[in-house]
Write a protein that binds this DNA or RNA. Sequence first.
DNA 1: CTAACTTCTTAAACTACTTTAATTTTTTTC
DNA 2: GAAAAAAATTAAAGTAGTTTAAGAAGTTAG
Lengths: 190, 190
Amino acid sequence: MHNLSKHIKELISISDEHLDEILGKFNEKVFQKREHILQQDAKVDEVYFIMSGCVRTYVYDLNGEEHNITFSMENWWFGDLQSFIKRNTGVYNIQALEETKVLSINNDNWNLLLQEVPAFVNYTRILFRNTMFTQENRILQNLSYTAAERYDFFLKKYPNLSQRISQKHIASYLGITPEFLSMIRRNKKD
Amino acid sequence: MHNLSKHIKELISISDEHLDEILGKFNEKVFQKREHILQQDAKVDEVYFIMSGCVRTYVYDLNGEEHNITFSMENWWFGDLQSFIKRNTGVYNIQALEETKVLSINNDNWNLLLQEVPAFVNYTRILFRNTMFTQENRILQNLSYTAAERYDFFLKKYPNLSQRISQKHIASYLGITPEFLSMIRRNKKD
DNA sequence: CTAACTTCTTAAACTACTTTAATTTTTTTC
DNA sequence: GAAAAAAATTAAAGTAGTTTAAGAAGTTAG
């Protein structure tokens, strides 16, 4: 449970009892490489904190093409939060890209913690806030920069991810084809 | 102060005393059409809730071109929240597109409310969460759809905004040139 | 260790979107 | 209410990114 307590303590101040109360609501799970953790239209009852490994969250567009919305790795949260909170069936697909160890929490326990542990309200508040900032920057980049520039930003922001994830998936995350990413990489060498 | 109390009550349950404590920390302000509310590199000490009117938030890219990141109108919050919270100078420019009446709250009062009114923590938590969801959907749309499709989504999501805001600004928000938006509109008529 | 499969690269033809520039329409200002 | 300024339209030429297709390199499974 070590990673998660560290993550919580980095964002808020909290007593050890409250921390234990939070940690007690989580279960450990392991997903194999290529295994699907969530599927579109399926029930969503959990969100996840990653201990080790890496996942991608993606959607299908109207032509049935996949688009990677986000990658998540060690010490990140992931899940279909919109569906989890609104109690709808899922809109995202989430797949493990490596063997991935997580801590999961279900909806009942999530709501219990929100009611009983004010520090958890504050922790998730800061989580949401930080995610909001990250997304704001991504929207800004998509509006303002070319694919080659966005690829450079990606490499700088997630230097180790680019070694762990196929270029096909990175291209999809950047909103371009794998062929065009390949061309960008060739041009960078000169 | 009516709009804001309504907005708060729609998102959380709260006592009248706590609501008054929150509302007491705000000031009314009016910005004229075309007036700048925030400028990049300037000090950011306030965030805003809109009573009436409409603003745009934009950045300059490396070529000095403007890009509209977001429009905000009645009953929405706006501001350079990243800079506000991190106590940095601003990265966004915000301009009133109409005469705009707002309630403003400064950083000291914001932090006071977070410390003294647990309901305010919860309220801002839900604000951040909803913004996160909106941004997630926008990223998804930018990855998956053509400019013409994104324009349709925009019209459906903000039907009245398109009458209040110039096409130049809508084009910038969609990440295309005004000329191309003009062509999209012409093709829609046939 | 080899076969089967998936990913990556290259290149040529194509399309969505941009750029430039000129004209028309709308809005602002005095 | 006329003059000036800003926004919208149109069209032609140009460019960033896609599509298609084929071969090379890397990964996975038996």
